[in-house]
Amino acid sequence: MEIQDKMIDATKEIFSTMIMMEINLEEITDVHGPLTDTITAMIGLAGKRKGVLAVHFPYPVALAITSSFLMMDVEEMNDDVHDAMGEIANMLGGNIKTILSENGRDIDLSMPSTIAGSEYSFQSDKDVEKVIISFSTEKGSFMVEMDLEK
C-alpha cells in the first residue's frame, strides 16, 4: 500500500472515531499555493526518515472540528483550536511513524506545533518528496501534507 493510501486511511479513521465528522477524499497532489486564513499543525519526524507531517485547516473547518471534538460551540480561533489541531497532527504523526518505522524506535516524533495567519506559505528548504491530500467537509476543504527528505 502506498504511503498516501495509508495517510488517507489514517485521516479517515481519526475523523470517524474521534471527531464524528464525515470527510471525503478530494484530490492527491504535490503542490499547493499560499494558505489564507488557515491554521497549520505540524509534527516533525527525525531518524531513519526525516520530514514534516502537516495538516492545513481553513479557520471555518478548524472551528467546526474543534466544536465537534469538544462537543461545544467554538466560534473564535483560540488555544483550544490550536490544541485540537495539534492533537490531530499528533495522531496522524503516530500513524505515519508506524508506517515508516519497522519497530517504532528508528523514527522520533517532535511535539506538535501550530501556526496560523491570514496568508503564508508552507514549504521545505530541503529536497523533499511531497504528498498533499485534500479532503472535503461540510465547512470546506483541508489538506494533509507529508514532506519526506529524499
Partner: peptide, 10 residues
C-alpha cells in the same frame, strides 16, 4: 493511551 504503539516502545 498514545499514538506511539510500536512494539519496542510499548
Amino acid at each position: 493511551i498514545s499514538t506511539e504503539t510500536g512494539d519496542d516502545i510499548i
